[in-house]
Design a protein around this nucleic acid. Structure first.
Length: 292
DNA sequence: TTACTTGACGATGGGAACGT
DNA sequence: ACGTTCCCATCGTCAAGTAA
């Protein structure tokens, strides 16, 4: 039910037939809110209907509210991304590995199977294509990898790969440390998946600056759980960006909050609530297998 | 059986856009 | 500058579903 009126009376609810009428009107008007006259007509008609006559007065404002909410809900539904979150026109980067872990997609994989030189994807045993991302030394942000150009090995240091970032040209290529600054792209956090995000988690967050907006590593300081509705997640997450230690309260996942793979797998192995474990286990099943 | 979660939906407040 | 209207995000509550 909706929020009860300030008068303290019972919560108001439109009947199915009223909704059907307004629904039809909305379609006829091409999803536009009807004129004030039409709203008043609806209100009068509903007020005088046999179900309400003498009991409940329907206000034009309530009819207007219904149209606004319905338009907003429909819009939200159509805009909702079917898969990964993408924030155009910037290339999407991804979430991070666990707090102190080396990216697990690299850690235990023999060098001969590392995804370079080749495209920024690799095929695992189960025919799952893997995509990678890399951290740029220029701005500290994470970008999708389009191609691994080449690689070089050192006797005393970690190997490096030359990376072509997705959406950028050769002039933006960089050598990056494989162990520290290359990892598998993570799954974006869908609205229903926010339960998997807990305080202290390392995540990826969209950060808007004056001239640009990029994805940076951040830690969750606090997670305020709120009930969801048809329009999605209403939780808020207080995060601290690792690169500048700034803090921000973000709604999730609309603003780019994404779940770290390793964090998920830790939970899948027994930590967190059952729901979180279920979710993370599903992530494991749905197309990704890793070596711990 | 009880507590908790999720989905649904009307109500509300802030801010942008617009007209005067 | 001010008032009005509109759009959007968020709030608050109920009912049904689910887990413990």
């Amino acid at each position: 039910m909706g929020r009860p009126p300030h008068s303290g009376g019972p919560a108001f609810r439109f009947t199915a037939s009223e909704v059907a009428e307004m629904e039809a009107c909305l379609q006829e008007s091409n999803n536009a809110v009807p004129t004030r006259e039409v709203l008043s007509t609806f209100a009068d008609k509903f007020t005088n209907s046999p179900e309400r006559a003498g009991k409940i007065i329907v206000l034009p404002k309530q009819v207007w509210n219904w149209f606004q909410n319905r338009r907003y809900a429909q819009k939200a539904k159509s805009v909702k991304a079917p898969g990964k979150l993408s924030v155009s026109p910037l290339p999407r980067a991804a979430a991070v590995a666990g707090d102190d872990s080396i990216p697990i997609t690299i850690r235990n994989v023999p060098n001969s199977t590392l995804p370079f030189p080749s495209s920024g994807r690799s095929t695992m045993d189960n025919n799952v294509q893997m995509e990678f991302e890399a951290k740029s030394a220029r701005d500290g942000a994470w970008y999708d990898v389009a191609t691994f150009i080449s690689h070089r090995m050192f006797e005393t240091a970690d190997p490096e790969v030359r990376v072509r970032f997705a959406g950028f040209g050769a002039e933006e290529d960089e050598w990056v440390n494989v162990r520290k600054h290359v990892r598998q792209r993570s799954l974006p956090c869908e609205a229903s998946e926010c339960v998997a995000v807990l305080p202290k988690d390392l995540i990826l967050c969209f950060q808007e600056g004056k001239d640009q907006a990029l994805y940076f590593d951040a830690h969750v300081l606090d997670a305020q759980r709120r009930r969801h509705d048809v329009r999605g997640c209403r939780c808020r997450f207080l995060v601290r960006y690792d690169h500048d230690l700034s803090e921000k309260s973000l709604p999730s996942p609309r603003n780019g909050l994404q779940i770290a793979f390793a964090t998920c797998f830790e939970r899948a192995r027994g930590h967190g609530t059952k729901k979180q474990r279920d979710y993370c286990s599903n992530q494991h099943i749905e197309g990704h297998q890793f070596h711990y």
